[in-house]
Design a protein around this nucleic acid. Structure first.
Lengths: 241, 241
DNA sequence: CGCCTTATTGAACCCCATCAATATCTGTGG
DNA sequence: CCACAGATATTGATGGGGTTCAATAAGGCG
């Protein structure tokens, strides 16, 4: 599948990029990659940085090179729902539409490769392969969103928290992964408030369920953020699906 | 934007098709349309017909010409969540992946234009415009899914039911629509059980909320299925966003 | 009409939200 | 190094919204 490209043709910036093959850039020719690299900027942002505000139209697209980005939506009275997490090497941004009514915020420190709006849109017009990658990612995100809808609509608090832990364990940049492509120890990419907003629960309920899982020795928690899954089988049982 | 095509070039089958311009077929040339029409079959199925079963890989794709299709997912113990509704002229099917773990069922009588798997995939390879349409639909469905996640995670029963009524009023084939592109009278495309599974509620709670809206003269209900929105403003208020 | 499915209504319970207090973590400065 | 402060998390007590169980009512169709 991969084109035969000489390394020397690949821009310096891209050569060390882990996202290049799996991410959308993998669909580009050497020339296109060069054109894109010329206009793209690496950025490193701290946790909590607002990447896309729902009011202002998005000025840029970006590739996530490392870190976790949370996508959220707000109701008028301030209730919040996190509607998705994006991990490297996901593509960030919503083509063909301004004003997505969606907020994107760095959950952890995030390294981005930022592309100007018009460059991406030009490349999209001339490269069906790029559009194909975006379609694949959109369909994957749609699958994930629908899977999460089951969690939100039909699972109880314990199942929700267990599902969340398994989700993070599955999606995390797998430095250490078990046979099921899951890490058994990782740092939570977000606060209890974020987790609650992702699960459709309150902070208190979320905390109580985590405490219960720890008390039952299904997981271990260190420094509030570092999770170790002691009994993956049991955690999976308790996730309800 | 639309190509200059002589009517005589358009297959008989497609000429009267309402879905042709808005649906994915609008992206095809006259020749491609002809090739597709030769292999496609019109089908009319009754409400309740299983269109995609989650176990078996999908054999076909289809365009919805009229009616409503509900997409649902099951947990192991039988809990069900409806994760989306599809209206004409949506494209039905999940390209590039078998075994979606997704059930599709006709909610109302549905008229379909059914395409063989391989024909669609061939057309996809040779027509970037078609793939572009699919990307647009996928992104729209992703937006809708995320919007619904807010409803599932953060709204109470009354807000959920009101949101559902507004959603149906907005998406329905608009024979009669008001200034906000909404119909004020329509037939519910599904049973209370379906609505409950879409809202993450029970049948009883759903029924109670509908009764309350009727008692407060926000809506009228005839024969259990026919809804008239008496006070759209109030209904919108009660939908919570 | 009579049968079956679907929907409504009622009563009791329970899970989770809410309110409140305490504990832990993190970073800063004495 | 410890003290302190602010943010974050845990734990407890109480109450309410939605589920559950049960009975009645209303549609749909022979």
């Amino acid at each position: 599948m991969r084109r035969d490209i000489h390394n020397s043709d690949i821009p310096e910036l891209c050569r060390a990029c882990e996202a290049r093959h799996k991410g959308v850039c993998g669909a580009l020719s050497a020339d296109q990659l060069k054109a894109l690299a010329r206009e793209s900027v690496r950025r490193e942002v701290a946790a909590g940085t607002e990447l896309i505000a729902s009011e202002e139209p998005v000025a840029t697209y970006a590739n996530i090179m490392s870190g976790v980005v949370k996508l959220s939506k707000l109701l008028a009275d301030g209730r919040r729902q996190i509607v998705g997490l994006q991990f490297a090497p996901d593509f960030l941004g919503r083509p063909f539409k301004r004003d997505g009514q969606l907020n994107a915020e760095a959950a952890t420190p995030v390294r981005l490769c930022v592309f100007p709006h018009r460059t991406v849109e030009r490349l999209l017009r001339e490269s069906p392969a790029l559009e194909h990658r975006l379609l694949e990612q959109a369909l994957t995100e749609l699958d994930e969103a629908r899977e999460w809808m089951v969690t939100l609509g039909r699972k109880n608090a314990e199942e929700k928290v267990a599902s969340f832990l398994l989700l993070v364990a599955t999606c995390y940049d797998p430095e250490v992964a078990d046979e099921a492509d899951r890490v058994t120890a990782f740092e939570l990419p977000m606060t209890r408030a974020d987790i609650a907003d992702f699960l459709g629960l309150t902070i208190e309920t979320t905390s109580r369920q985590l405490t219960r899982l720890r008390r039952d020795r299904v997981i271990e928690i260190a420094h509030n953020r570092e999770i170790t899954i002691l009994d993956p089988e049991e955690l999976s049982q308790r996730s309800g699906g």
